[in-house]
Design a protein around this nucleic acid. Structure first.
Lengths: 168, 168
DNA sequence: TAATTCCCGACTGAATTACTCAGTATATTA
DNA sequence: TAATATACTGAGTAATTCAGTCGGGAATTA
């Protein structure tokens, strides 16, 4: 379990996808502009997320990325783990002699802490964040704008709407 | 809130101090050998821990480091924060325009997650780890050995004992 | 066909990690 | 008092990671 800016980028990007899930795919260009992250860097992060099945890409105009699973089945721990490659495990773990045959005590304790932390973050899903009332309110406001414009441009409403509601 | 190998080093070292608290100061040389971390690197980490008042150093032979406060009053979050300098906060936070005047939604959500995580780690104290029965058992065994030798070398028992019970 | 998007790999400067070395300061012990 | 063990400090450094650029290719839509 490691946690850095990289993990934060991945989580916020995934939240973005979750929020705009019903509007069709979200482009990396949108996220890039929105959150101030370089496009190519996002591509690298999303390559890892895709490998884990957390997102799926849709090519071509009107394409982008959408969640690979329902937001309720994607945990924060999964997201972080897929981009922040695991911290190197302590030397003594696995082979059980740290110092003098006896299995290292503090390393056991760290393992304990680490798994508690993982459990905590694995319990938090994307859905548990975006389903809170304040969030739904903001999301709803953006939807009304989007759908109003959508009725004016019937063919690909999602794309047009997405451009408008790109204010993160 | 950032979490890396550096933080792990600090936490395990602090656990070491907490476990051997009643035996007098623990030297960095012990921890270094025990946990396979370079001595000078430990010194740098402990400089930060000392600055935060989490540990206090004792110079001279028989010296070392001991906890700056009772183990029940030192949280994991404090330890990590003192060595893993904080993740750079998102651009839009503070000044409240991320993109178009409206405060960035995903960044609010991240702040939320971040504070939940901090609260979780701030609730975990050193004491909550070392007070578990398995740990006390190991610690007790080492104590009996230490005190048996201590009676044979009256003047500075703690130091001699520490050398023996250095198997982490 | 042209445009838009995902996808892929090589490369790069800057920062961080983990470490080495070389010393100074303070306390203990012989 | 001299020797020793420890904490402290700071400068330097190879390796790694971060975050990004660049140049393309592949699939989809219009």
């Amino acid at each position: 379990m490691k946690l850095s800016t990289k993990g934060r980028y991945a989580v916020t990007a995934m939240l973005d996808l979750a929020i705009h899930d019903h509007e069709g795919p979200v482009t990396l260009a949108d996220i890039s502009q929105c959150q101030g992250i370089s496009l190519s860097y996002l591509e690298q992060l999303f390559a890892k997320l895709r490998k884990e099945g957390l997102v799926e890409g849709v090519r071509g105009p009107g394409g982008g990325y959408r969640l690979g699973r329902p937001a309720s089945q994607i945990s924060i721990a999964e997201i972080i783990n897929s981009v922040d490659e695991n911290i190197d495990v302590t030397r003594c773990l696995g082979n059980k002699d740290c110092q003098g045959g006896e299995k290292c005590l503090t390393h056991q304790l760290w393992e304990d802490l680490s798994s508690r932390l993982y459990a905590f973050l694995d319990d938090l899903t994307l859905a548990s964040f975006i389903n809170r009332p304040e969030i739904r309110e903001v999301s709803r406001r953006q939807d009304t704008i989007a759908s109003r414009i959508a009725t004016m441009f019937p063919p690909r409403p999602a794309r047009v709407g997405a451009n408008i509601s790109a204010s993160c």
